[in-house]
Structure formats: structure tokens, C-alpha cells
């Protein structure tokens, strides 16, 4: 496991120590560690010569940042308008109740992190959730719970008539991002 100091050095170097790139740096850090550990954030503040207060503010403002480790499986449930009209909030309540987890939080057994989002842009499948990069659409509270229990047991959920497909991971590793060169330019 790479030391905080070294990891922060690498990340900051990737962005030429530009303070404006703080959010991409934090995204890379979270992709590497699974969440944003306090120690790493403090080191980042030192390296960029900005107050830790500012980094803490950014970490708690944006919904995708986690200050605590996430569960084995992340449930991304869409609460966009179309999904909502088709009962997504009942699915949300059911998940919260069944797995004893709050929005943004992780279940006590560390199996699930529940992350409701406002619109995944897959409205034709409403109500829809993504678990472990697989889409599950046309959900009901019961079917969602069943799928999740199967996932927790390590069983691949039964294929419905609609074919689920792998979506690209949201939190790629920093190395993979670098390799794909997401538009970063090196200043000479």
C-alpha cells in the first residue's frame, strides 16, 4: 500500500501542482483509496499551500466525494423526474429499510453503499439503478431488493428479458485515467 506522502506527490505532479485542478486531484485520490482519507487530504493541503479548511469544504460540498470507506457494492439509484414518477422513491425507502442504510451512507455490514443520484440519463429504463457497473431497469421495490440480496450472496442476478450491459466505471484508477489521457496537456 503506497504511503500517503508518496501518493499525494504523484497525484499533484500529474496536474503540475495547479490549485485549479484540486477537484480532479481529489477524484484521483478517491479512485485510488476508495474514499478520501483525512491524512491524505491534510498532506494535499500542505503540498498545494492551501488551508485544509478549503479542501474539507470541497470534500463535503460535492455529492460524489466520500470521507468514509464505501461498501463492497455501490447502489446508484436514479431519482430523476421520470424514475421518480415511476416510483423510485418507494424503491429508495425499501432499500434503506431492508439494508439499514441512509442515502450516501454504507450499511453496517459494509456490504452496500447507497448512493441515490439525480438522473443517470437512462430515462427509457426508468426506474433504474446501477450496481457494480451493471444497469438494472424497470424496477419495483421487490425486484430491487431481490437483485440486491442476490448480489450480496455473490449470485449473479437473473437476466431479465431486457439485457443489462456493463457501463464504464465511474471511479477509474488513476493509472488507467493517465493512460487514456483525458485531455491533459503537459506544459513544456
Amino acid at each position: 500500500m503506497i504511503q500517503p506522502d508518496e501518493l499525494i506527490e504523484q497525484i499533484v505532479a500529474c496536474y503540475d501542482e495547479q490549485v485549479g485542478m484540486l477537484i480532479p486531484m481529489m477524484q484521483d485520490l478517491q479512485a485510488e483509496c476508495g474514499y478520501l482519507p483525512a491524512e491524505h487530504l491534510r498532506r494535499l493541503a500542505q503540498k498545494l499551500h492551501i488551508p485544509i479548511t478549503r479542501i474539507y469544504g470541497v470534500a463535503t460540498f460535492y455529492a460524489s466525494f466520500r470521507l468514509f470507506p464505501k461498501g463492497e457494492h455501490t447502489i446508484t439509484l436514479c431519482l430523476g423526474t421520470v424514475c421518480y414518477l415511476k416510483g423510485a422513491n418507494r424503491i429508495s425507502e425499501a432499500i434503506q429499510q431492508e439494508f439499514r442504510v441512509t442515502p450516501g451512507g454504507t450499511s453496517e455490514d459494509k456490504k452496500f453503499t447507497f448512493s441515490p443520484v439525480n438522473c443517470l440519463g437512462a430515462c427509457a429504463l426508468a426506474p433504474v439503478m446501477i450496481v457494480d457497473n451493471e444497469y438494472y431497469g424497470g424496477l419495483s421495490p421487490e425486484s430491487a431488493i431481490e437483485i440486491l440480496h442476490n448480489i450480496a450472496k455473490g449470485k449473479k442476478p437473473p437476466r431479465e428479458d431486457q439485457q443489462a450491459e456493463k457501463a464504464k466505471s465511474v471511479g477509474k484508477t488513476r493509472k488507467a485515467e493517465k493512460a487514456k489521457s483525458v485531455g491533459k496537456t503537459r506544459k513544456k
Binding site: I52, T53, Y56, F61
Partner: peptide, 17 residues
């Protein structure tokens, strides 16, 4: 900068890191 804002919306608070 000993204190700052954290959170968003109605959950916004002034706090230490």
C-alpha cells in the same frame, strides 16, 4: 482559515476541518 463552510444547502455549517 481555522474555520470554514462544510456541506451544502440546508446542511451547510461553519466548522473546523
Amino acid at each position: 482559515s481555522a474555520i470554514g463552510f462544510s456541506g451544502r444547502g440546508v446542511d451547510r455549517v461553519v466548522t473546523t476541518p
